[in-house]
Design a protein around this nucleic acid. Structure first.
Length: 577
RNA sequence: GCCCGAGUGGCGCAAUGGUAGCGCAACCGACUUGUAAUCGGUAGGGUAGCGGUUCGAAUCCGCUCUCGGGCUCCA
């Protein structure tokens, strides 16, 4: 069977599984009101309005009931009915009635199996017995229609596969993903922490995490300088009037922290870096000849996020954007966007991301600027994407109010998507701040402003990196690259000498001088995912070598210290894993 | 913010109304060792916080905080 055919079959089965789940829930709660029950990646869900909260044990009961329904081999029956008839069928199902009212056709389709009838386009499998291996995963709250003003329903998530093996594989992948969860690894590898005393969503970078971050930042700065960027710094707070001018006070209020009083003046902690960059731009007249100007800042911003959305390093309240603003002429926009895209993709490849998804978001309902400028900028973005032959998807109406944008989503080693670089054109700020340049004609023209990141934020990107590498950072990023492990006390001096020599070479190396056994030291270095473990005993001291053990478990046997240094240096330079 | 669940020494867990316990880590001591845990000993919490029910609360109830799974939103 073709891949597509297989997928369709699987999707039909999952969709049917959600109907069977609904039937099972109905048999347990006859007064249930049904929401919707679609398929999602890997599985399905169904939303229910129930008289009481579900508890995890309910899932087992529902699963058992589902198994009975499946064993009963009920056929799925498709039927087209008049809307009026459908309204009778679903007379006690308010959510379904709402859906019926929104269907433009005069006739609607219903599917029946066993004692259950649902408003549904299908398709379905022909009988419940075709539903093979399934498992209910979790219960969650979900607003009807995803709107927080609507009632909250109870959602049950499930997965279904053709075979028990595939189901088990899926559950194993799930467990594997949990193992590389950056929140867990962050603690185990001593990278970062959060504190109840300090507040949620505020990251504390430990020495090892900070080391990785510093290496990323140093690399980031170097690559920016190569590409004609200049590095700037701007303050963390500014008077409220600046944020009123920028529009943040009006349009971004929900993410702002309350003003603080400074000698009778109100100040805000910055949620974005742009106004500061604009102030620098405006310190003097800028000529068309100076453009483009590319100013980058590792700018730390603070945004209020609702408590329920915080998540590890990927959604926090204080974070450092690898921000930059490009001020250019309209005729330079395309080249600038191409440059940023190439830069972003270069960064992704460097950090080991081979797969990504490019998304172009267009004008939303509420927007600043004119339709003409929007269209022109959107076309420019598209031309840039086409010039690079980058496949992309258009996300209509999903742009920010101030301009169209390109987002790049990364796929990590497990194929999961992460939000990465973003490029946004801004028509709003140049106008609000009157940001311009003097053209060839001697008159002032509005500047085109581009916001962009090539990593996203240090926090989110770090979280993504941790999971991508499962904590085993490539040598160039490893906080500790080599641990020298002496076998007995008499090898301590040599171990310290080797470590010192490696440090002098710029390698992050340390000797494990604790009075412990070699096996324990290897185990701990291994659990810390240290790339190189250098064992030194009588043999090594005798011929000035180190025995190299890799974290893969591979034993590279004795090497001269110089040879090891060369090997480590090469891995660093190549940024190899 | 909303729905559901959870919070027990640094970490992982046990104790389900009747004297808070185990493993790892920590500390002390012995062992001097060839590729993932040497052995022995010592100390450490009154159960996230506050309030309540009870003769008695880690366990039951209420509020707050934090975390987790979702919804909504996002770098």
């Amino acid at each position: 069977m073709s891949n597509q055919g297989k997928n369709e079959k699987l999707e039909r089965m999952r969709h049917s599984a959600s109907h069977v789940m609904a039937e099972a829930v109905q048999s347990l709660f006859p007064e249930v009101k049904f929401g919707i029950g679609p398929i999602i990646e890997g599985g399905f869900y169904y939303d229910f309005d129930l008289p009481r909260s579900l508890i995890p044990e309910d899932l087992h009961i529902i699963e058992a009931r589902m198994a009975e329904i499946i064993a009963s081999d009920f056929p799925f029956l498709r039927e087209e009915v008049e809307k009026e008839e459908a309204r009778c069928i679903f007379a006690y199902q308010p959510y379904k009635l709402e859906l019926i009212d929104e269907i433009p056709d005069e006739r609607v389709i219903v599917y029946r199996q066993g004692s259950f009838t649902d408003l549904c386009k299908g398709p379905h499998v022909s009988s419940t017995s075709e539903i093979k291996s399934f498992k209910l995963m979790s219960i969650a709250g979900a607003y009807w229609r995803g709107d927080e003003r609507c009632p909250m329903l109870q959602r049950i998530y499930g997965v279904a596969f053709e075979t028990q093996e595939e189901l088990e594989q899926h559950l194993e992948r799930f467990a594997a993903a949990a193992k590389r969860d950056h929140r867990k690894l962050g603690r185990e590898l001593d990278l970062f922490s959060f504190h109840e005393e300090a507040g949620p969503g505020l990251v504390h970078w430990h020495p090892k995490g900070a080391t990785v971050r510093r290496i990323i930042e140093d690399f980031w700065i170097e690559e920016h300088l190569k590409r004609g960027y200049e590095i700037i710094y701007t303050p963390h707070i500014a008077k409220i009037d600046l944020w009123k001018t920028s529009g943040h006070w009006e349009l971004y209020r929900e993410h702002l922290y309350s003003p603080m009083d400074v000698e009778g003046q109100e100040y805000l902690i910055k949620p974005m870096n742009c106004p500061g960059h604009i102030l620098i731009y405006k310190t003097r007249l800028r000529s068309y000849r100076e453009l483009p100007m590319r100013w980058a800042e590792l700018g730390t911003v603070y945004r209020y996020e609702r408590s329920g959305v915080l998540h590890g390093l990927t959604r926090v309240r204080g974070f450092t954007q690898d921000d930059a603003h490009i001020f250019c002429r309209p005729d330079q926009l395309e080249d600038e966007v191409v440059g940023v895209l190439e830069f972003a993709l270069f960064m992704m490849r460097t950090f080991g991301f081979e797969e990504y998804e490019v998304l172009l978001s267009t004008r939303p309902e509420k927007y600043a600027g004119t339709i003409e400028t929007w269209d022109a900028a959107t076309e420019t973005l598209e031309r840039a994407l086409k010039r690079l032959d980058l496949p992309y998807r258009v996300d209509p109406g999903e742009g920010v109010f101030y301009g169209p944008k390109i987002d790049i989503g990364l796929k990590d080693a497990l194929g999961r998507a992460w939000q990465g670089p973003t490029i946004q054109v801004d028509f709003n700020l140049p106008e609000r701040f009157d940001v311009s340049y003097v053209g060839m004609d001697g008159v002032e023209h509005p500047v085109v402003m581009v916001h962009r990141t090539v990593l996203g934020s240090m926090e989110r990107f770090f979280g993504c990196l941790i999971e991508h590498y499962a904590g085993a950072f490539p040598v160039w990023l490893s906080p500790v690259q080599a641990v020298v492990i002496p076998i007995a006390d008499r090898h301590l001096d040599y171990a310290l000498k080797v470590a010192a020599e490696l440090k002098a070479e710029g390698l992050r190396a340390q000797a494990d001088t604790r009075p412990e056994r070699m096996g324990l030291k290897i185990r701990e270095a291994q659990l810390q995912k240290t790339p190189y473990m250098l064992i030194v005993g009588d043999k090594e001291v005798g011929n000035a070598t180190v025995s190299v053990r890799l974290r893969s478990g591979e034993d590279l046997a004795g090497q001269a210290i110089e040879a090891f240094k060369a090997m480590a240096r090469e891995a660093m330079e190549k940024k190899a894993p």
